[in-house]
């Protein structure tokens, strides 16, 4: 049996991590286990499950809160989808809350953490587009100190992140938008619940007097890492919010690189992204329409 440690403080966790080997036998960081346990089951079925020491982060005190720190909201590593779903948060979190509501079922929402979702770095991770659209940063701690990386820099590729072997992701920091902001999230899947996204889009729009000051849009499951759409965002700035949906064109999606897989074709993903973006923007212009 490999070692299993469940420290009660971050300092202790970081010390254990610093002392651990980094290559072979590096400990597996465990949060809610909703990615880790399924992966182990899949590996075990083909006799490929390799026991690894586990560093369980769930006992670390003080990580389970969403705090308003003035300029930011700080979402700790212990925060689950259920908390994001149920706690009152300002309107720019609507996208993240809608994503939380649609992750797995109640059981997965009760256990899975947002940070785990980011660190797992799946192209279809539903937490990523809402946070990219919010310009969120990931806070990483090690005995060497604490650093912050924009989420887009933290996610390096398909299941790859910038997390160093001695680091733990401790929080997501979400800067507050200027003035009023609305946000939304649309997820497309082939069934009602428990479904991995074929495509999902998230957006945060800051507007005044019906005109867009800043629109931030992100698309997931259409590239190894979810992406913002800077050309489209630039094109939308200054426009009436009511006209935004009609602005979206295929050319704005040129940076996406969707693939064919069992869930859909690349061509379909591109097309669906266009449709979802238009609907998202139309919905943000008339929020009551977004639900339909």
């Amino acid at each position: 049996m490999a070692a299993y440690r469940r420290p009660g403080t971050l300092a202790e966790a970081l010390a254990l991590l610093a002392a651990a080997p980094t290559e072979q036998g590096a400990p597996l960081l465990l949060a809610g286990g909703t990615d880790i346990y399924p992966a182990r089951a899949a590996a075990a079925a083909w006799l490929r499950d390799a026991p690894r020491p586990v560093l369980d982060l769930s006992g670390i005190a003080g990580m389970g809160a969403i705090e308003d720190t003035g300029g930011h909201h700080r979402i700790g590593a212990g925060v689950t989808w259920a908390m994001l779903r149920d706690q009152p948060l300002p309107p720019w979190f609507t996208a993240l809350r809608d994503a939380a509501r649609q992750v797995g079922g109640m059981q997965v929402q009760a256990r899975g953490t947002l940070l785990g979702n980011l660190c797992n770095a799946s192209p279809a991770a539903d937490g990523v587009p809402p946070l990219l659209a919010l310009d969120a940063e990931v806070e990483l701690a090690s005995l060497r100190g604490t650093r912050r990386l924009p989420l887009g820099d933290f996610l390096l590729g398909y299941r790859r992140t910038a997390l160093a072997p001695d680091e733990i992701a401790t929080a997501v920091l979400v800067p507050k938008p200027e003035g009023s902001a609305r946000s939304g999230f649309l997820k497309l899947g082939a069934r009602a619940y428990l479904v991995i996204s074929i495509v999902m889009v998230a957006g945060v729009v800051e507007a005044a007097a019906g005109r867009i000051i800043r629109a931030r849009l992100a698309v997931g499951a259409c590239s190894a890492v979810a992406q913002r759409l800077p050309t489209l965002e630039a094109a939308l700035a200054g426009l009436p919010l009511a006209d935004a949906a009609a602005m979206v064109e295929t050319a704005h999606l040129a940076t996406l690189s969707p693939i064919d897989d069992m869930r859909a074709t690349a061509e379909y993903r591109r097309h669906a992204t266009l449709v979802l973006l238009r609907r998202l923007l139309a919905g943000l212009a008339a929020p009551e329409a977004l639900a339909a």
Partner: peptide
């Protein structure tokens, strides 16, 4: 054993969880 079927659902501290995804230590 992967959270997909929910057959293993129990209430842990009052919340529904897939027991197959919960380490004993937690």
């Amino acid at each position: 054993d992967a959270g997909d079927c929910g057959a293993c659902t129990v209430l842990l501290r009052g919340a529904p969880v897939c027991a197959c995804l919960v380490p004993l230590a937690q």
